[in-house]
C-alpha cells in the first residue's frame, strides 16, 4: 500500500492547472517560491497520482504559504511541525502522497527535532526545504543556515554562528534520499520532485531559494548564469562527476578527502551506495575551494516506516484469535454475575 502504486493512478491525466487553487499568490514578485510552486504543480500533474490522495502540509514562514496555492488536500500547520503533522497523516493513511513544505527556520530551528526523527524513521514523506538562509516572514532575523558574517536584524554586526548544512543533517540522521536544487533550474526541480515521489522512504529536497527582500543573491554564485558552471557540480547517478567550463574538471579521492582533478580522472557518482561517507563529503563541498553539489546526492533503498508498521498490524491480525473488541474484552480472567 505505497504511494505511487497502480491503485493510485489517475485517468485521464491531470494538468498543471488542476493543481492551481483559487487563492491569490502573495509572495513578493521575483521570489524563488513562485518557481517552486510552478515546478510542484507540473510535477503533481506528471505523477498521475489521484488528486484526492495527495496531501500538502506546511509549517510557518513564507514557504509555508504554498499549501493555500496547491489544489490538493492541505494543512497549513504551526511553526516547525509540518513534518510531525505529516508523519501522523502518512501513518494514518499510507495511500497518501504526502508533500511537506518548510523553510530553513521552520525545519532546522524550531522543527529540528521532527526533521531528524523523520529521517531516522525513513517515513515516506517528500520534504521540500526552501533554504533562503534567513527568516523572511518575520522580517530578516538570522536562521540556522545564515552564513557567518551576514548582517541580519539579529546580527547587525554580522552573524557569528556556524550554520547548518541541511544535507549533512539529513544524511547524518539517516535520510535515504537527499537532493539539492537551485530554484532557477526548473527542469532539475521537477525531475527531482518526480524522483522523490517514486522513492519509497523519506526524501529531502533542499531548494536554494532566493529571497529578493532579505538575502537577494545569496545563492547567486552557485546559481547565476555566468558562474554556475564553475561553482556548481551537478550530480547524476552512474555518471562521472564533472564541472567547470566544458566540464573540464572533476573530483578524486585523496587520502581522507575529495580533491579537484581533471575530467578524465574523476570519480563516478553512486547515489545508491548505502555507506554515507562519500555522500557526506559531496554534500559538504563548498565555495570557494569547491563547487557546490546539486542534483540527487543520495538515494538508497530501505523499508519505509509506515510499511513496517502496517505490515506488522496485518501480520498480527492474521494470527490473532480476536476479530473484534468484544473478543478482546471477554478474553482472560472474567466472571459471571447472574
Amino acid at each position: 500500500m505505497q504511494a505511487g502504486t497502480v491503485k493510485n493512478k489517475v485517468q485521464p491525466p491531470l494538468t498543471r492547472k488542476d493543481f492551481k487553487s483559487d487563492q491569490d499568490v502573495r509572495w513578493c514578485p521575483g521570489c524563488g517560491d513562485h518557481l517552486i510552486l510552478a515546478s510542484m504543480q507540473n510535477a503533481f500533474a506528471k505523477m498521475g497520482h489521484k488528486k484526492e490522495n495527495i496531501l500538502s502540509v506546511s509549517g510557518i514562514g513564507c514557504s509555508s504559504r504554498i499549501t493555500y496555492y496547491l489544489e490538493t488536500y492541505g494543512i497549513h500547520s504551526i511553526h516547525g511541525r509540518a513534518i510531525a503533522v505529516s508523519t501522523g497523516a502518512k501513518l494514518a493513511n499510507p495511500d497518501l502522497n504526502v508533500w511537506v513544505f518548510t523553510g530553513d527556520g521552520d525545519s532546522m530551528a524550531i522543527g529540528g527535532n521532527h526533521f531528524i526523527h523523520a529521517c531516522r524513521r525513513n517515513i515516506d514523506l517528500n520534504v521540500v526545504v526552501f533554504n533562503n538562509r534567513i527568516y523572511g516572514m518575520t522580517k530578516g532575523q538570522s536562521s540556522p543556515t545564515t552564513p557567518v558574517g551576514l548582517k541580519t536584524k539579529t546580527a547587525p554586526g554580522g552573524s557569528y554562528e556556524n550554520p547548518f548544512n541541511i544535507g549533512e543533517i539529513a544524511i547524518g540522521a539517516g535520510a535515504t534520499f537527499f537532493a539539492r536544487v537551485p530554484d532557477n533550474d526548473l527542469k532539475m526541480l521537477e525531475d527531482v520532485m518526480l524522483q522523490a515521489y517514486h522513492h519509497k522512504g523519506i526524501s529531502i529536497i533542499e531548494v536554494l531559494q532566493n529571497c529578493v527582500i532579505f538575502t537577494d543573491g545569496i545563492h547567486e554564485k552557485i546559481t547565476g548564469k555566468d558562474t554556475k558552471d564553475e561553482n556548481q557540480v551537478i550530480l547524476e547517478h552512474g555518471k562521472p562527476i564533472q564541472f567547470g567550463k566544458e566540464n573540464s574538471e572533476g573530483l578524486k579521492i585523496s587520502g581522507m578527502r575529495l580533491e579537484k582533478t581533471t575530467a578524465e580522472n574523476t570519480i563516478i557518482h553512486d547515489a545508491e551506495e548505502a555507506d554515507t561517507n562519500m555522500h557526506l563529503s559531496l554534500v559538504r563541498l563548498k565555495l570557494p575551494e569547491f563547487p557546490v553539489a546539486t542534483g540527487i546526492i543520495r538515494k538508497v533503498e530501505s523499508t519505509p516506516y509506515e510499511k513496517s508498521v502496517h505490515d506488522a498490524i496485518a501480520d498480527v491480525q492474521a494470527g490473532s484469535p480476536f476479530k473484534n473488541v468484544d473478543d478482546l474484552f471477554r478474553s482472560g480472567n472474567t466472571w459471571e454475575i447472574d
Partner: peptide, 30 residues
C-alpha cells in the same frame, strides 16, 4: 495491533499532538 491500532511513539510531546492532528485530518479516530 490485533485491533488494528496504529501507534506512533513520537519524538516529543509536540510531535505527538501534531501527528495526532495529521491523523485526524486523514480521517482516523485520532
Amino acid at each position: 495491533k490485533d485491533m488494528g491500532a496504529i501507534v506512533l511513539q513520537a519524538e516529543d510531546e509536540i510531535a505527538a499532538v501534531t501527528a495526532a492532528i495529521g491523523a485526524a485530518f486523514s480521517g482516523n479516530l485520532s
